[in-house]
Amino acid sequence: MEAVLDELYTTPPSGFVTRRETLALAAKTAGRVDDARRIRAARRPTLAAWAANLLLRSQPEESRQFLELGRALREAYQSLDAAGLKDLSAQRRRVVSALSRQAAQLARDAGQQLSEPVQQDLEATLRAVLADPDAADQWAGGRLVTALTPPSEFRPGSTPVAPGSTPVAKRPGTRSRSAPPPRTGATKDELAERRRARQEQLARAREAAKAAEQRLREERARQADAGAELQRARERTEQARRQMSAVEEQLRQAREEGRRAENEQHEAEEHSRSAADALAQAERVARESAQQVRSMSRGGT
């Protein structure tokens, strides 16, 4: 059932309702009434939400790294200075931009062109995943219905749910695992320990960002290779089509020539029959004339 819903939420929105009804009917026919009811209750996602779902399902490893990057960024943003925040913000923008372009390409491959407003909603969703643990959990479920809105600031949270798994709801009263506020009169050792922890968080966040960027570069290279291969295939297809068109034109001309030859043959046969009839008539007249001459010659004698 989970696999059925996962497949449904990666169906382009234009075909969502038809696919939903087909899957629901199949479940009902198989006697799974509750599953059919659950399938029919599924809401059609917006184009941006569908593209985000498609990205998660099509690139599971890259999506996992993106969720890990969000966790590292949320930890780091709680304790970084202005310079560190600026550095991580730049990395965040690059990763979000690259991932949104990749999602747009996946959408195009699936036959859907993303408009500029839809692309903006997609980027907002990815920013929300990085900044908000609840948004990360929603995206990790792979069944977004609408685009997500990023918060005004980063929110701490626990480790995000793995891509494709069902998010676990937070229990009321559960607090995030953020560092406790500094106590008044903290010792130098405690302050040094906090600074060391902040540096470790920053290092993890930077490493996660670099890993995500490297993964994106590799994916872009593979995508470029696939695009080049697709272009070569299209060129071969176009060449084959041109050759087929030339052969079809030759065949058309041969058929036309054949029809003309058949017509000429029919005319020649008609002329031949007419000539044969004329010859037979001429021979009959000649015989009659010869017989008449012989008759006249015998009478004169």
Rank of each mutant, 00 (worst) to 15 (best):
T22H: 10
P13W: 02
Q199H: 11
Q102Y: 05
R108E: 13
K210L: 08
D121A: 13
E116A: 11
A124F: 02
L106Q: 08
A208P: 05
L69M: 15
A147H: 02
V96D: 00
R234P: 03
Q138G: 04
R92F: 04
P167L: 04
A280S: 08
S115Y: 05
R64V: 03
Q59Y: 08
R260I: 09
G141E: 05
R284N: 07
Q65G: 13
L251P: 04
A52L: 01
A212D: 04
Q199Y: 08
T29Y: 04
R171P: 02
Q292K: 14
E283T: 04
R19N: 04
S100P: 02
R234C: 05
R255S: 06
E248V: 07
R175S: 11
L126Y: 06
Q291H: 08
A48Q: 03
V129T: 06
L5Q: 03
E219N: 14
A72Y: 01
T159V: 13
E257T: 09
V247F: 12
G141Q: 00
R236W: 06
A136D: 01
P167S: 06
F16Q: 02
R259M: 07
G300N: 10
K28E: 12
E75Y: 05
S158G: 15
R206S: 09
R294K: 12
Q291E: 11
A208L: 06
H271E: 11
A186G: 12
A212H: 01
R196M: 08
S272H: 09
E249T: 08
A205H: 01
V168C: 07
R175V: 14
L88P: 03
K170P: 06
A233R: 15
A233S: 14
E229T: 12
E256L: 10
K188M: 12
I39C: 02
A51F: 02
R20I: 08
T301N: 08
E62D: 11
P45K: 00
T46W: 00
V161Y: 05
E207D: 15
F154M: 10
R93A: 15
A169D: 14
R44F: 01
A169K: 11
F154E: 03
W139K: 00
H266A: 12
D132G: 02
R38I: 03
E248S: 13
M244L: 15
L8A: 01
A162Y: 05
L23Q: 00
Q292N: 09
R44V: 08
L114A: 03
R37W: 08
A240S: 09
A90Y: 10
L106M: 04
R273S: 06
A76W: 00
L216Q: 11
Q113I: 09
A203L: 10
E283K: 10
A224R: 13
R260W: 08
S97A: 13
A72Q: 07
D6L: 07
R284I: 01
T149A: 12
L202C: 11
A282S: 10
D137I: 00
S89P: 00
A192N: 09
A169C: 06
E219L: 13
E270W: 07
A72I: 01
